[in-house]
Design a protein around this nucleic acid. Structure first.
Lengths: 169, 169
DNA sequence: TTGGAAAGTCAACAAGACTGACATATATTG
DNA sequence: CAATATATGTCAGTCTTGTTGACTTTCCAA
């Protein structure tokens, strides 16, 4: 059985193909870990990841319009609408007619919605906190840096605008 | 408009909630960037992400059994089977009866399968390479460290065994 | 005032996950 | 050898979450 461990980078100035491959697989497997805890919680409520994402960003930038949320999530309005309707019907999200433009709907979490948001985000933060803690502050900086570089340029603007608008809780 | 930039960590010994939140959103948005290029390519072939994943790991650990692939992907055999059947029917994957245990099927990419694999992985590696390059080698180390910490313990074993088995090409 | 654009909703469909039941071939064990 | 267990494949049905297309309501500008 021949191993290819000795095969050194050929096509690359900086990163070996092996390092890139490892990074790719890490993204795949780590994303699983990242979503696992919230997913388990969501099962108890018969909601899915799509609901979690909506709840997260409505909490994050409270009062945002459907269209803004659409842009953040990168799905069609029809897809979002199904999820949103459930959350409104179940009393987790409130959809108020816009004051300036009455075509728009401004979205807010109800107290009930806040409750679920807290449960979900605490689980997710806890795993993130553990990872941060075990890896150390220097590693965290690198982690953020690489991920920021991996964003699409269009997304980069969105994330920044969220950070500006956002008032967490 | 009040900003919350001055709000300092309250509940945490090490990482502020704001830093954790940023990490969480980065994971979400960066994963989109990560899958974007392959997704676009797959559209041309009427395949999806599920096919990509199968192709990736069959290439990665050539000759692996259906059961091993199942474990890596973390899906049911019915789900994998649909995808695998298409790939075999289309002549991208070969499924050989095991030599020791004839119940098993060992999976290999055909030349045609290799071709698609290369197209997909080159696109994905290119984005990863750019991110690595722009972020720098120190950041890459941190990136890997944090992601490794984010894995589920069970997954950690799998990834290591893949790295051992793997003989890329 | 009227026509177009924007926001949201309804309906139908597709991919890819899931469960459950079952078939077949092969291995292993009593 | 017979019985049981394992590996794989398949059929059928369901669920979530994405898609397109068609439609209504509302706003704004020519």
């Amino acid at each position: 059985m021949q191993h290819s461990r000795n095969v050194k980078p050929q096509s690359t100035a900086f990163a070996s193909d092996e390092a890139l491959l490892h990074g790719i697989e890490l993204m795949f497997f780590a994303y699983r870990g990242f979503t696992q805890d919230p997913d388990r919680i969501l099962d108890n409520y018969a909601y899915g990841r799509a609901h979690h994402r909506a709840i997260h960003f409505i909490n994050r930038t409270s009062g945002l319009t459907v269209n803004e949320l659409l842009g953040i999530l990168g799905v069609t309005k029809q897809s979002l609408n199904r999820v949103l309707r459930q959350l409104v019907d179940d009393g987790l999200v409130e959809s108020r007619v816009g004051t300036e433009d009455r075509r728009q709907r401004n979205l807010y979490l109800t107290p009930k919605g806040k409750l679920l948001e807290t449960e979900l985000s605490e689980a997710q933060r806890e795993r993130m906190r553990q990872a941060y803690q075990n890896a150390g502050p220097e590693a965290v900086k690198g982690f953020q840096k690489v991920l920021e570089e991996m964003l699409d340029p269009a997304l980069r603007e969105i994330t920044e605008s969220i950070r500006d608008i956002g008032h967490g809780d």
